[in-house]
Amino acid sequence: MHGPALVSWLLAALTAAAGTYCLSRLRDPSCEQPGAADRPGLFGHESNAAEALMGLGMAAMAVTGGLVPPALWAWLFGLPAAGFLVAALAPGPPARRAHRLHHAIGALAMTYMALAMAGAAGAHAHHAAGGAGLPPLTGGLLLYFGAYTLWAGSRLLATPSGVLRSGTAGLPQACRLTMGIGMFAMLLTL
């Protein structure tokens, strides 16, 4: 990630906290999303695992992006992206399919950023006039994650005030909002 070091570290702290929270929710036996009646708990665990991977991965990429080979980042996020794309095409409730598609888009965006870093490193990006990546694709992803962040923020505002303090419903929404903002910031600095 390009940009001031302070921004990278703040982004890493926020996304690491969100990813760690999602990771801790994997241990919760009542980790269930609404609409997962056919396999109680499985969809919630799948969602929390994906969000933990994305949060911790964004934190690691924000801090060590240039030190870790971009091909490793591409594989780390490309394989889950393919899995979520296949899962999103499987029959099931539309909400579950849309959620899996969102995770696929997030993992594909991380893969795209890793490949853009590889291309920038190969082309000596400090001599290039523009940023890394393809501007139309980066713009489309910025629009998607900007809209997602606004949507997640509106859902967080809709939670009852007492729920956020107890951490039962508002905290997962706050984590999704944090990761949406993190993805938007990483794409913006690409």
Rank of each mutant, 00 (worst) to 15 (best):
R27I: 14
G44A: 08
A62M: 01
F84M: 02
S24R: 14
Q33N: 13
M54E: 00
F43L: 10
P70G: 07
A16K: 11
F77L: 10
S24I: 12
A52C: 08
A16D: 04
P69T: 09
P34G: 09
G44Q: 02
L42N: 15
P80N: 10
R27L: 15
P70V: 08
P70Q: 14
E32Y: 11
L23D: 03
G55D: 04
G65Q: 06
E51I: 11
A62R: 01
F43C: 07
F77A: 01
E32A: 10
V7E: 05
W75M: 10
A59K: 01
M58S: 00
D28Y: 12
N48G: 11
A17L: 04
F43V: 03
V7M: 12
G35L: 06
G66R: 12
F84Y: 12
M54T: 12
V68A: 08
L26N: 05
M61V: 06
S47A: 15
L14C: 07
P29Y: 08
L23Q: 09
G66H: 04
W73A: 10
T64Q: 15
A59I: 10
D28V: 15
N48H: 14
T15G: 00
V86F: 10
A62Q: 01
G78I: 07
H45S: 05
A87D: 14
R39H: 12
Y21S: 11
M58R: 05
E32S: 12
P29I: 13
A37D: 12
G35P: 06
W9Y: 08
R25W: 04
A87V: 09
P29W: 14
L56T: 00
L10E: 06
A50Q: 04
N48E: 06
M58W: 00
V68L: 06
A81F: 02
G65Y: 11
L72G: 07
P70W: 09
T64F: 15
A71Y: 11
G78K: 00
C22I: 13
